[in-house]
Nucleic acid binder design. Structure first.
Lengths: 225, 225
DNA sequence: TAAAAAGTGTTGTTTTTACAACAAAATGGA
DNA sequence: TCCATTTTGTTGTAAAAACAACACTTTTTA
């Protein structure tokens, strides 16, 4: 079956065999499509019929407000899904745009078929739904993390909050940020150049060290945690 | 059955009859408890065994970081649930504190029992799970809204983003904010006094009008939307 | 109902941030 | 490999926000 290897690696289809996976493709009325870098996978305001699964590549979720300001809400990578929340909320249009950040292959899955157990009660459908729930839970948690970083008052505090979370996740003082600096500034909603200045200061003060995307938090010896 | 009237009004048990609801109480190993204003319903770091459903009253979800700064992540009201995401993510401790903002009655539901369909396959359990999903979807959407307001650069833009969302939701230029001004400042992560100043300016400029929690957006006649 | 607590608006000052403009470095294609 | 594009760090300046301190109002509760 086409793309089974990739599907097997996603959150949603991780525990299906080839036959089951194939069956689900019918059940969920799926279709595949590939997008080039910068192409819109879906556009804000467009009628929403599908939940989207990123099979290969990556995309950003961006939102344009009525004044024309663009903000990047999150970044999706291989295996991530978009639109589950909206599908449950009963939205009829996409509330954000999905823009490919590289050559990206996606799977469109009919939203009704996906969130409602099907009439023929196909066994694996329940599993798909459970996986969707885990995916939603993860999204919520990621958003909560983002909110907690953004809530900090100064750029330095925002950075530290973010770094501490990454440090905890990596289990070591050394970690790698999943963003370019430009994207990190966007994620934290701060001015890029101001953030760059702050990072330099922090390095000079010996609080952190970094090179490219590699970072390290330097613990102060009199700091007791 | 005790509290059936209140349970009937919640997201989770909205479509159960008294008998089914009673059965679910056993199935989910629930227990009721009442808290006074300011009391901690659960505390950050405490072992997490239950998902919490607010039956009556309200609470805030607050998080304390390693520097001791408190931030309010969201506010829960009657019918809301807390902890579904964490339960799915497999967390073993509460990551936030839940503090009652008034006299509040809650239902503790065993997290394992709640998120996993039970062995006896009780019919209503599936429905509860579907409702939990809707609840998660809502939470995600609320967080996304919050993020999009917070992403705006100036206090004024944050306020306008928030007001426009409320205006849209209410379907009228008149709407009521669900917060005190102090809480609103906290929600948007801005200084309360700076926000107060900005609100006054906006009123003077004729962009908005407000009294207590009642607000109104005043459309500029040359503004075409 | 009186006292305490919480919420609100105002001000001047200090701190932080955004902004703009630039050069250098890194990256990615053709 | 070379050119175009993107990313990054730096600086000075202007704008915005946080902060602190206060008086006044509203709400809560003992």
């Amino acid at each position: 079956m086409e793309h089974f290897d990739e599907l097997k690696k996603t959150k949603i289809f991780k525990d299906t065999n080839e036959f089951e996976c194939q069956a689900m493709m019918f059940c969920l009325k799926t279709r595949f499509k590939t997008f080039d870098k910068h192409q819109h996978i879906v556009s804000q305001g467009e009628p929403m019929d599908d939940i989207i699964l990123i099979i290969k590549g990556g995309a950003i979720v961006e939102n344009i407000d009525s004044l024309g300001n663009i903000s990047i809400l999150m970044r999706l990578k291989k295996g991530d899904v978009y639109g589950v929340e909206s599908a449950y909320a009963g939205d009829t249009v996409y509330k954000d745009s999905l823009v490919a950040t590289e050559r990206t292959r996606v799977l469109f899955m009919n939203k009704h078929r996906t969130i409602n157990p099907c009439e023929n009660r196909c066994k694996k459908h329940e599993m798909v739904i459970k996986n969707l729930m885990q995916s939603m839970a993860q999204t919520s948690i990621q958003l909560l993390d983002k909110v907690s970083h953004m809530s900090k008052k100064t750029i330095r505090d925002k950075l530290m909050s973010y770094f501490k979370a990454l440090e905890k996740k990596s289990g070591s003082a050394y970690f790698e940020i999943p963003f370019s600096k430009t994207e990190l500034a966007n994620y934290l909603s701060v001015d890029r150049s101001a953030m760059s200045t702050e990072l330099t200061k922090m390095k000079e003060e010996g609080i952190i060290d970094f090179d490219k995307r590699q970072f390290r938090l330097i613990k102060n010896q009199n700091e007791i945690l």
